[in-house]
Amino acid sequence: MNISKEEVLHVAKLARLKFTDAEAEALAKDMESIIGFANKLNELDTEGVVPTAHAIPMHNAFREDVVTPSYDREAMLQNAPSKEDGGYTVPKVVE
């Protein structure tokens, strides 16, 4: 399995991470071995096996539609690095 430096940088961009060229090259090697390891699974014959949706063999864990009190706004906002008018201030991103 070959992982290029460009692929590392693409994944890094998606995760909002920044690497130097040297770091990206080292990571490419690491990712090659990680993905190579996961790829071993492809050697198994999975003909007729239903894809696994969840590792735990359980289903239908639901909650009834009953209102529980929300948290106090001040408590919610107390860890916000920056706040204004009862809201979290975030960098302006207009897409």
Binding site: D65, V66, V67, T68, S70, Y71, M76, D85, G86, G87
Partner: peptide
Amino acid sequence: KTNTKIYCGCINEFGGEPNTHTCPICS
């Protein structure tokens, strides 16, 4: 048109003062 949000018990209601219908799950 449910009473509560999809993954927590916070009220599903339009409007309200900012961040008064939240909890650690939905935020």
